[in-house]
């Protein structure tokens, strides 16, 4: 524990990396997941199949392999994130951060898609029919009627998906991002005798972060339930 307190600044910046990874990937995964679910439940068969294939392939691929792809294979194909270079305090958002955000977003978006799809399926068919009957286009039906209700129904599974994302950000620690896990490993390597205390301290911060997420999710759920 001492080791953590003595290095509280570094630990704080490490968690800043973790939180930023989560926020960027969280928002992107929600947007992309919504787009994917729109394709999956949409009327165009080719797009339905494309989205379903994408979800199947990416969801069934270990996150580690997706990160390996963007870190080691993609550069050989000319896909790099070297244009990203933002420094904020001790937070360094460079190509590694970019590749991690892209990997985490692509991976998590498939889970978001499936969580939302269960939400879409829970919206009675009559809702979409009524929306079509007043002359809304497919986009209007989805954005005005189906998705808002799907989101409400999907809050619990979406919260689980985002909590998993928060914890999955630790994988970036071995792909060049100085986030919580990377900092923790420096501390455990350095302060061998305090390993258990260091583990506990980092675990507690993660528990707190997850609790904050769960709290927000349950607030949202309650607010939307009245509606």
């Amino acid at each position: 524990m001492e080791a953590v307190l003595d290095n509280i600044g570094l630990v704080g910046w490490a968690f800043a990396h973790t939180v930023l990874l989560f926020l960027f990937s969280g928002v992107l995964s929600l947007l992309l997941g919504t787009f994917l679910v729109a394709l999956r439940v949409g009327p165009v068969v080719v797009l339905q199949r494309a989205a379903a294939t994408y979800v199947t392939v990416v969801r069934n691929t270990p996150l580690l392999i997706i990160l390996m792809f963007f870190q080691f294979a993609a550069p050989k194909l000319g896909v790099t994130f070297n244009f990203i270079d933002v420094q904020w305090g001790e937070v360094s958002m460079t190509s590694f951060f970019g590749a991690a955000v892209v990997s985490l977003s692509l991976y998590t978006s498939t889970f978001v898609c499936e969580a939302l799809r269960s939400g879409v399926n829970s919206v009675p068919l009559g809702q979409a029919e009524a929306a079509r009957a007043i002359g809304l286009s497919f986009g209007g039906v989805m954005s005005q009627v189906v998705l808002p209700q799907a989101y409400r129904a999907s809050v619990p599974p979406l919260a689980s998906v985002q909590i998993a994302l928060l914890k999955n950000t630790t994988v970036a620690g071995v792909f060049g991002v100085m986030e919580a896990l990377a900092r923790m490993r420096i501390l455990t390597n350095n302060f061998t005798g305090q390993k258990i205390g260091i583990f506990l301290a980092f675990a507690i911060v993660f528990v707190v972060l997850v609790e904050v997420l769960s709290f927000l999710a349950s607030r949202l759920e309650r607010r939307w339930r009245i509606a």
């Binding site: 009327p43 009559g126 809702q127 009524a130 007043i134």
Partner: peptide, 25 residues
């Protein structure tokens, strides 16, 4: 058949369903 023209047609045809189908949210 599809698309905008169909949506425009539906706008001109009012529909009342057995199960009301009011937008719940």
């Amino acid at each position: 058949q599809e698309g905008k023209a169909l949506a425009a047609l539906r706008a001109d045809v009012g529909m009342v369903f057995q199960s009301f189908n009011l937008f719940a949210h």
